[in-house]
Amino acid sequence: SHFELRVGTITLHFDNISEELAEELEKLAKNGVHADEIRRWWEEWLK
C-alpha cells in the first residue's frame, strides 16, 4: 500500500509499506527525526 508521511515541509512517499512500518515511521517523525534520516532508515530496511 502507498503511504505519505509529512515531515516538516517535506512529504515522503512510500510504496509497498506495511501498516506497522508506516506507524513506526510516523513515530519517528513525531519524535522530531528529520526526513533525510527517515528516508535513509527506509532505504536500509529495503535492502
Rank of each mutant, 00 (worst) to 15 (best):
T11C: 04
E20L: 06
R6Q: 15
E20W: 09
E43Q: 15
L28D: 01
K27W: 11
H34D: 12
I10V: 12
E43W: 15
I17W: 03
I38P: 01
V33T: 10
E23Y: 14
N16L: 05
K27E: 10
D15P: 08
K47Y: 12
E43G: 09
I17A: 03
N31L: 13
K27R: 11
D15G: 09
L5W: 02
L12P: 00
E43I: 15
N16Q: 04
E24H: 11
E20T: 11
E20H: 09
T11H: 04
S18L: 03
L28N: 02
W41C: 05
I10A: 05
I38V: 06
E24M: 11
E37L: 10
E24V: 11
L12S: 00
A29I: 04
K30P: 02
E37R: 07
I38E: 01
E43K: 15
E26L: 15
E44Q: 14
V33A: 14
E37T: 09
E23M: 14
I10Q: 08
L25I: 07
I10M: 06
H34L: 10
L12V: 03
S1I: 15
R40A: 12
R40D: 05
L12D: 00
H13G: 03
F3S: 00
L28A: 06
V7Y: 03
F14S: 01
E26M: 15
E23V: 11
A35D: 03
D36N: 10
E44Y: 15
K30F: 12
W45V: 07
E23T: 12
W41A: 10
A35N: 03
W41V: 14
E24F: 14
V7E: 01
V7P: 00
I10P: 00
E4W: 08
W42P: 01
N31S: 12
G32S: 05
W41S: 05
L25S: 01
L46T: 11
W45A: 06
K27I: 09
E19N: 13
W45F: 08
D15W: 15
A22L: 07
D15V: 10
S18N: 08
H13P: 01
E44P: 00
I17L: 04
I17R: 00
L25A: 04
I38L: 07
L21A: 09
R40K: 11
E4G: 00
A22R: 13
E23A: 14
H34R: 10
T9R: 05
I38G: 01
H2A: 07
T11W: 07
H2F: 06
L21R: 03
R6I: 14
I17T: 02
L25T: 00
H34V: 09
I17P: 03
V33W: 15
G8A: 02
S18R: 04
V7I: 09
A22E: 08
A29E: 03
L5Y: 02
N31T: 13
I10E: 13
R39A: 07
N31W: 12
T11K: 03
L25K: 00
R6W: 05
W45R: 11
T11P: 00
H2I: 07
E26R: 14
W41H: 11
F14E: 00
R39T: 10
W42M: 10
E23I: 14
E44A: 15
E44N: 15
L25Y: 02
G32I: 06
I10R: 02
T9K: 08
E20P: 07
E4K: 02
A29Q: 03
L21N: 05
E24D: 08
W41T: 12
E4A: 02
V7G: 01
A29G: 03
K27F: 09
E4I: 07
R6C: 05
E26H: 15
V7C: 05
W45N: 06
L25Q: 00
T11G: 01
H2S: 09
W41P: 00
E23L: 13
E37A: 10
E4C: 05
H2C: 11
E37Q: 11
W41R: 13
E44S: 14
E24R: 13
L28F: 12
H34Q: 13
I10H: 05
